[in-house]
Simulated scan of single mutants.
Amino acid sequence: MFSYGVVLAIVLILIFQHRKRIRRGYGYATRATAPLKTYVLPVPQQYRDILQKYFRYYRNLSDKNKARFELKVTNFIYGKRFIPRNVSHVPVEAKVLIAASAVQLTFGLPHVYLRHFNKILVYPNNYYSSITKQYHKGEVNPKYGIIVLSWQAFVDGYINQTDSTNVGLHEMAHALRLENIVRYENSRYLNENALEQFDAWAKRICASTEPNTFFRPYACVNVHEFFAVAVENFFERPARFSEELPELYSIMVKLLNQNPLEMKQL
């Protein structure tokens, strides 16, 4: 009886592991075929409705570029696994708008979909990290290909689009710069000369004895945070950015291959 029970337990474990591998393989295949699905299947009308209702950047695009934006959003959604944390599921509105924040950042970079980051963890509110012992609004983990967001903080960032604080753009900026290192060591998609110029500006501003009155102090934690904060200001306060730091703004235009002051030309 004992040996039969042991054998049965082993069989059940093997079946469970096999089913788990199948599910993992199916999920990988689903994400890997995202580009094909995007161009074969129509963009769900629900996605368009959500973008039109809630995403100002999308509304400001020309009709031609709205269609291109929709394709990039759909590709992003198909290529990621959205994982709910402390909630039962991730609503379609959250998937579309989180994808839209990534596409907003990368819209001028046609072949960039942040593919290294294939898991999006979504918390309803700020979440506690057992590592830092602090509450967070978002973070990026390149080792495991994870982007983590507080949905409430994400929404707050887009409700007020002029305060230069946007957790969606901030975390996607981290992901963009990290993926430029992780996946493209020999062929990086961000203009290397412009990136070097950007880093030089970051060091100059943060090392200056004169107080920086444009970027919030958190920008000077390190060059990655400076990039993320610069991205927030690039999209939320482009006119003032261009006026106060015209050279740095021009570098950002070159890095992201777009200019928020000339939306219709995208």
Rank of each mutant, 00 (worst) to 15 (best):
A153W: 04
F241V: 01
I146R: 07
M263W: 08
F154H: 15
E225T: 02
F69R: 00
P211D: 10
Q134L: 06
L256Q: 10
G27R: 07
R23N: 13
Y26W: 04
F235D: 00
N222W: 02
H18N: 07
D63Q: 15
K95E: 13
V221W: 12
P91R: 04
T74F: 11
L51C: 00
N75S: 10
Q152R: 12
V103T: 13
E185K: 15
T30A: 07
R188W: 00
R23L: 10
F241N: 01
V73C: 10
V231C: 01
I120S: 00
V221H: 12
F214V: 03
E262H: 12
K72Y: 13
N186R: 15
V231A: 08
Y184Q: 09
P260C: 04
R81D: 13
E236P: 07
E179D: 04
I50H: 02
R59H: 04
P124T: 02
V73W: 03
V148M: 14
G27T: 03
V96S: 05
N125T: 12
R23T: 12
A99P: 06
Y78H: 08
F241H: 03
H111W: 09
R21P: 05
R21G: 08
Y58C: 05
K66S: 03
V253D: 10
V92E: 13
F226A: 03
D49T: 07
R68K: 13
V122G: 03
Y58M: 08
K133E: 14
Y158P: 04
C206R: 10
M252G: 08
F226G: 05
E192Y: 12
E225R: 15
Q104A: 07
Y39C: 09
T165R: 14
S150W: 07
R21N: 15
D163M: 02
Y54D: 08
G138A: 00
Q17D: 15
Q197F: 08
T74A: 13
E179N: 00
F227K: 01
I15Q: 09
E185M: 01
A67P: 03
I98Y: 08
N180W: 02
Y249E: 01
V167R: 09
K95C: 08
L61T: 00
V221A: 09
V167T: 05
V221D: 12
